[in-house]
Protein backbone atom coordinates (compact mmCIF):
# COMPACT_ATOMS: atom_id res chain seq x y z
CA UNK A 1 0.00 0.00 0.00
CA UNK A 2 0.98 3.56 -0.54
CA UNK A 3 1.75 5.64 2.48
CA UNK A 4 -0.75 8.39 3.11
CA UNK A 5 -0.55 11.43 5.30
CA UNK A 6 -3.35 12.81 7.47
CA UNK A 7 -5.01 14.45 4.47
CA UNK A 8 -5.13 11.22 2.56
CA UNK A 9 -2.71 12.36 -0.10
CA UNK A 10 -0.15 9.90 -1.34
CA UNK A 11 3.32 10.53 0.01
CA UNK A 12 6.67 9.77 -1.56
CA UNK A 13 8.12 6.43 -0.49
CA UNK A 14 11.06 8.31 1.00
CA UNK A 15 8.95 9.65 3.87
CA UNK A 16 6.45 12.38 4.63
CA UNK A 17 8.27 15.70 4.81
CA UNK A 18 5.93 18.48 3.78
CA UNK A 19 7.54 21.47 2.13
CA UNK A 20 6.10 24.02 4.55
CA UNK A 21 5.22 23.17 8.16
CA UNK A 22 1.54 24.16 7.83
CA UNK A 23 -0.64 26.05 5.37
CA UNK A 24 -1.01 28.96 7.80
CA UNK A 25 2.74 29.27 8.18
CA UNK A 26 3.05 29.16 4.41
CA UNK A 27 0.69 32.10 4.12
CA UNK A 28 2.54 34.11 6.76
CA UNK A 29 5.86 33.43 5.07
CA UNK A 30 4.34 34.55 1.78
CA UNK A 31 3.09 37.88 3.16
CA UNK A 32 6.38 38.56 4.95
CA UNK A 33 8.08 37.74 1.67
CA UNK A 34 5.83 40.23 -0.14
CA UNK A 35 6.60 42.96 2.39
CA UNK A 36 10.30 42.22 2.11
CA UNK A 37 10.19 42.51 -1.69
CA UNK A 38 8.27 45.79 -1.38
CA UNK A 39 10.70 47.29 1.11
CA UNK A 40 13.67 46.13 -0.92
CA UNK A 41 12.29 47.56 -4.17
CA UNK A 42 11.50 50.92 -2.57
CA UNK A 43 14.89 50.99 -0.83
CA UNK A 44 16.65 50.47 -4.16
CA UNK A 45 14.51 53.22 -5.67
CA UNK A 46 15.33 55.66 -2.83
CA UNK A 47 19.04 54.91 -3.05
CA UNK A 48 19.04 55.53 -6.81
CA UNK A 49 17.08 58.77 -6.29
CA UNK A 50 19.59 59.86 -3.65
CA UNK A 51 22.56 59.09 -5.90
CA UNK A 52 21.00 60.94 -8.84
CA UNK A 53 20.30 63.96 -6.63
CA UNK A 54 23.94 63.96 -5.50
CA UNK A 55 25.07 63.72 -9.09
CA UNK A 56 22.82 66.59 -10.22
CA UNK A 57 23.85 68.60 -7.18
CA UNK A 58 21.03 71.13 -7.52
CA UNK A 59 18.49 70.90 -4.67
CA UNK A 60 15.99 73.04 -6.56
CA UNK A 61 15.89 70.68 -9.55
CA UNK A 62 16.07 67.44 -7.59
CA UNK A 63 16.49 67.43 -3.83
CA UNK A 64 17.52 64.23 -2.09
CA UNK A 65 14.85 61.96 -0.59
CA UNK A 66 16.16 62.96 2.84
CA UNK A 67 15.45 66.63 2.17
CA UNK A 68 11.97 65.73 0.94
CA UNK A 69 11.32 63.68 4.07
CA UNK A 70 12.54 66.53 6.28
CA UNK A 71 10.24 68.92 4.45
CA UNK A 72 7.33 66.55 5.04
CA UNK A 73 8.13 66.37 8.77
CA UNK A 74 8.48 70.16 9.05
CA UNK A 75 5.24 70.81 7.18
CA UNK A 76 3.46 68.32 9.38
CA UNK A 77 4.77 70.01 12.54
CA UNK A 78 3.68 73.43 11.33
CA UNK A 79 0.20 72.03 10.66
CA UNK A 80 0.29 73.03 7.03
CA UNK A 81 -0.04 69.45 5.88
CA UNK A 82 -3.05 69.07 8.09
CA UNK A 83 -4.95 72.10 6.84
CA UNK A 84 -4.36 71.27 3.17
CA UNK A 85 -5.21 67.60 3.61
CA UNK A 86 -8.42 68.55 5.38
CA UNK A 87 -9.31 71.01 2.62
CA UNK A 88 -8.76 68.44 -0.12
CA UNK A 89 -10.44 65.60 1.76
CA UNK A 90 -13.52 67.72 2.50
CA UNK A 91 -13.91 68.46 -1.20
CA UNK A 92 -13.26 64.83 -2.06
CA UNK A 93 -15.87 63.62 0.41
CA UNK A 94 -18.51 66.17 -0.58
CA UNK A 95 -18.22 65.73 -4.31
CA UNK A 96 -17.88 61.94 -4.19
CA UNK A 97 -20.94 61.61 -1.96
CA UNK A 98 -22.91 63.89 -4.30
CA UNK A 99 -21.80 61.91 -7.35
CA UNK A 100 -22.92 58.65 -5.72
CA UNK A 101 -26.22 60.09 -4.44
CA UNK A 102 -27.15 61.46 -7.86
CA UNK A 103 -25.36 59.03 -10.14
CA UNK A 104 -26.57 55.72 -8.73
CA UNK A 105 -30.32 56.54 -8.75
CA UNK A 106 -30.01 58.04 -12.23
CA UNK A 107 -28.16 54.95 -13.41
CA UNK A 108 -30.86 52.74 -11.92
CA UNK A 109 -33.61 54.75 -13.62
CA UNK A 110 -31.76 54.55 -16.93
CA UNK A 111 -31.10 50.84 -16.54
CA UNK A 112 -34.69 49.99 -15.63
CA UNK A 113 -36.62 52.26 -18.00
CA UNK A 114 -36.10 52.46 -21.74
CA UNK A 115 -37.79 55.85 -21.82
CA UNK A 116 -35.50 57.41 -19.27
CA UNK A 117 -32.49 55.91 -21.00
CA UNK A 118 -33.54 57.19 -24.41
CA UNK A 119 -33.96 60.69 -22.98
CA UNK A 120 -30.91 60.98 -20.76
CA UNK A 121 -28.29 58.96 -22.62
CA UNK A 122 -27.79 61.44 -25.50
CA UNK A 123 -27.08 64.24 -23.05
CA UNK A 124 -24.56 62.08 -21.18
CA UNK A 125 -22.85 61.06 -24.38
CA UNK A 126 -22.69 64.72 -25.41
CA UNK A 127 -21.11 65.86 -22.16
CA UNK A 128 -18.93 62.88 -21.30
CA UNK A 129 -16.15 63.47 -23.85
CA UNK A 130 -15.62 66.97 -22.40
CA UNK A 131 -13.38 66.13 -19.48
CA UNK A 132 -13.80 67.80 -16.12
CA UNK A 133 -10.54 69.63 -16.58
CA UNK A 134 -11.82 71.35 -19.70
CA UNK A 135 -14.55 72.92 -17.52
CA UNK A 136 -12.02 74.64 -15.26
CA UNK A 137 -11.84 78.01 -17.10
CA UNK A 138 -15.61 78.26 -17.49
CA UNK A 139 -15.98 77.09 -13.91
CA UNK A 140 -13.70 79.86 -12.70
CA UNK A 141 -16.00 82.36 -14.39
CA UNK A 142 -19.17 80.95 -12.99
CA UNK A 143 -18.00 79.83 -9.54
CA UNK A 144 -14.94 81.97 -8.99
CA UNK A 145 -11.68 80.90 -7.40
CA UNK A 146 -12.59 79.10 -4.19
CA UNK A 147 -14.15 76.10 -2.55
CA UNK A 148 -16.87 75.45 -5.11
CA UNK A 149 -14.69 75.02 -8.20
CA UNK A 150 -12.63 71.94 -7.24
CA UNK A 151 -15.69 70.34 -5.67
CA UNK A 152 -17.75 70.84 -8.81
CA UNK A 153 -14.94 69.65 -11.09
CA UNK A 154 -14.43 66.49 -9.08
CA UNK A 155 -18.17 65.85 -9.01
CA UNK A 156 -18.25 66.14 -12.78
CA UNK A 157 -15.27 63.77 -13.15
CA UNK A 158 -16.71 61.13 -10.83
CA UNK A 159 -20.32 61.37 -12.01
CA UNK A 160 -20.07 59.77 -15.46
CA UNK A 161 -18.19 56.56 -14.57
CA UNK A 162 -20.66 56.00 -11.72
CA UNK A 163 -23.76 56.51 -13.89
CA UNK A 164 -22.43 54.42 -16.78
CA UNK A 165 -21.32 51.50 -14.61
CA UNK A 166 -24.62 51.53 -12.75
CA UNK A 167 -26.51 51.31 -16.04
CA UNK A 168 -24.27 48.45 -17.17
CA UNK A 169 -24.72 46.71 -13.84
CA UNK A 170 -28.51 46.99 -13.87
CA UNK A 171 -28.73 45.88 -17.48
CA UNK A 172 -26.40 42.91 -17.14
CA UNK A 173 -28.46 41.28 -14.40
CA UNK A 174 -29.12 37.73 -15.52
CA UNK A 175 -32.75 37.78 -16.75
CA UNK A 176 -33.11 34.23 -15.45
CA UNK A 177 -32.76 35.56 -11.90
CA UNK A 178 -35.49 38.12 -12.45
CA UNK A 179 -37.76 35.46 -13.95
CA UNK A 180 -36.98 33.13 -11.07
CA UNK A 181 -38.09 35.83 -8.63
CA UNK A 182 -41.22 36.60 -10.68
CA UNK A 183 -42.38 32.99 -10.80
CA UNK A 184 -41.95 32.93 -7.04
CA UNK A 185 -44.54 35.71 -6.99
CA UNK A 186 -42.20 38.49 -5.84
CA UNK A 187 -43.27 42.04 -6.63
CA UNK A 188 -41.31 44.60 -8.64
CA UNK A 189 -40.05 46.65 -5.68
CA UNK A 190 -38.68 43.56 -3.98
CA UNK A 191 -37.09 42.37 -7.20
CA UNK A 192 -35.26 45.67 -7.51
CA UNK A 193 -34.24 45.56 -3.85
CA UNK A 194 -33.25 41.89 -3.52
CA UNK A 195 -32.30 40.81 -7.05
CA UNK A 196 -31.24 43.75 -9.18
CA UNK A 197 -29.53 45.82 -6.49
CA UNK A 198 -27.16 43.06 -5.28
CA UNK A 199 -26.53 41.90 -8.84
CA UNK A 200 -25.64 45.43 -9.97
CA UNK A 201 -23.62 46.35 -6.89
CA UNK A 202 -20.25 44.95 -8.06
CA UNK A 203 -20.43 47.08 -11.21
CA UNK A 204 -21.53 50.13 -9.22
CA UNK A 205 -18.52 49.78 -6.95
CA UNK A 206 -16.17 49.38 -9.90
CA UNK A 207 -17.74 52.58 -11.26
CA UNK A 208 -17.17 54.28 -7.92
CA UNK A 209 -13.49 53.36 -8.00
CA UNK A 210 -13.12 54.58 -11.57
CA UNK A 211 -15.00 57.76 -10.70
CA UNK A 212 -12.90 58.40 -7.62
CA UNK A 213 -9.70 58.02 -9.66
CA UNK A 214 -10.84 60.32 -12.46
CA UNK A 215 -12.37 62.83 -10.05
CA UNK A 216 -9.28 63.01 -7.83
CA UNK A 217 -7.11 63.75 -10.83
CA UNK A 218 -9.47 66.49 -12.04
CA UNK A 219 -9.70 67.97 -8.56
CA UNK A 220 -5.96 68.21 -8.10
CA UNK A 221 -5.81 70.06 -11.42
CA UNK A 222 -8.60 72.40 -10.33
CA UNK A 223 -6.83 73.12 -7.03
CA UNK A 224 -3.60 73.74 -8.85
CA UNK A 225 -5.16 76.28 -11.20
CA UNK A 226 -7.96 77.87 -9.25
CA UNK A 227 -8.19 77.29 -5.52
CA UNK A 228 -6.74 79.10 -2.50
CA UNK A 229 -6.03 75.91 -0.56
CA UNK A 230 -5.64 72.16 -0.89
CA UNK A 231 -2.89 69.80 -1.92
CA UNK A 232 -2.82 70.85 -5.58
CA UNK A 233 -2.60 74.48 -4.53
CA UNK A 234 0.25 73.73 -2.11
CA UNK A 235 2.28 71.91 -4.77
CA UNK A 236 2.09 74.90 -7.10
CA UNK A 237 2.64 77.41 -4.27
CA UNK A 238 5.93 75.82 -3.26
CA UNK A 239 7.07 75.52 -6.85
CA UNK A 240 6.75 79.27 -7.20
CA UNK A 241 8.81 79.64 -4.04
CA UNK A 242 11.31 77.16 -5.57
CA UNK A 243 11.03 75.01 -2.43
CA UNK A 244 11.22 71.70 -4.25
CA UNK A 245 11.46 69.48 -1.15
CA UNK A 246 8.06 70.78 -0.05
CA UNK A 247 6.70 70.25 -3.58
CA UNK A 248 7.77 66.61 -3.36
CA UNK A 249 6.26 66.28 0.10
CA UNK A 250 2.87 67.39 -1.20
CA UNK A 251 3.15 65.26 -4.34
CA UNK A 252 3.73 62.32 -2.01
CA UNK A 253 0.63 63.25 -0.02
CA UNK A 254 -1.48 63.43 -3.19
CA UNK A 255 -0.38 59.91 -4.04
CA UNK A 256 -0.91 58.67 -0.52
CA UNK A 257 -4.45 60.05 -0.22
CA UNK A 258 -5.40 58.73 -3.66
CA UNK A 259 -4.04 55.35 -2.69
CA UNK A 260 -5.78 55.26 0.69
CA UNK A 261 -9.11 56.28 -0.79
CA UNK A 262 -8.83 53.50 -3.37
CA UNK A 263 -7.96 51.04 -0.60
CA UNK A 264 -11.07 52.16 1.27
CA UNK A 265 -13.22 51.50 -1.79
CA UNK A 266 -11.54 48.12 -2.35
CA UNK A 267 -12.28 47.23 1.23
CA UNK A 268 -15.93 48.21 0.64
CA UNK A 269 -15.97 45.95 -2.42
CA UNK A 270 -14.73 43.02 -0.36
CA UNK A 271 -17.19 43.64 2.44
CA UNK A 272 -20.26 44.47 0.33
CA UNK A 273 -19.74 42.11 -2.60
CA UNK A 274 -17.61 39.18 -1.48
CA UNK A 275 -19.20 37.08 -4.27
CA UNK A 276 -18.12 39.40 -7.08
CA UNK A 277 -15.88 38.08 -9.81
CA UNK A 278 -14.72 41.47 -11.00
CA UNK A 279 -13.25 43.76 -8.42
CA UNK A 280 -11.71 45.78 -11.23
CA UNK A 281 -8.22 44.95 -10.02
CA UNK A 282 -6.58 46.23 -13.18
CA UNK A 283 -8.25 49.62 -13.20
Amino acid sequence: MTARDENGAAVAPGGATPYWPTPLAARIYASIGGLFVYVRAMAVFLVIWHLVSLWIGNPILLPSPIAAAEALVDLTRQGEVFSNVVASLTRLGTSFALAILLGVPLGFAMGLSRNVFAMVDPLIELLRPISGIAWIPLGMFILGVGEALPTAIMFYGAFFPIVINTVVGVRSVNPGLVQAARVLGVGRAHIVRHVIWPAALPNILVGARLGAGAGWMAMVAAELIGAPSGLGFAVEWYRELLMTPSVLAFVFLIGLLGYLFDRLLRWLQRVLTPWAQTQGGAL
Partner: peptide, 8 residues
Amino acid sequence: PRTGQRTL
Protein backbone atom coordinates in the same frame (compact mmCIF):
# COMPACT_ATOMS: atom_id res chain seq x y z
CA PRO B 1 2.06 25.31 -3.91
CA ARG B 2 -0.35 26.56 -1.26
CA THR B 3 -0.06 23.82 1.34
CA GLY B 4 3.40 22.49 0.57
CA GLN B 5 2.13 18.92 0.39
CA ARG B 6 4.22 16.48 -1.60
CA THR B 7 2.20 14.26 -3.86
CA LEU B 8 3.50 11.38 -5.92
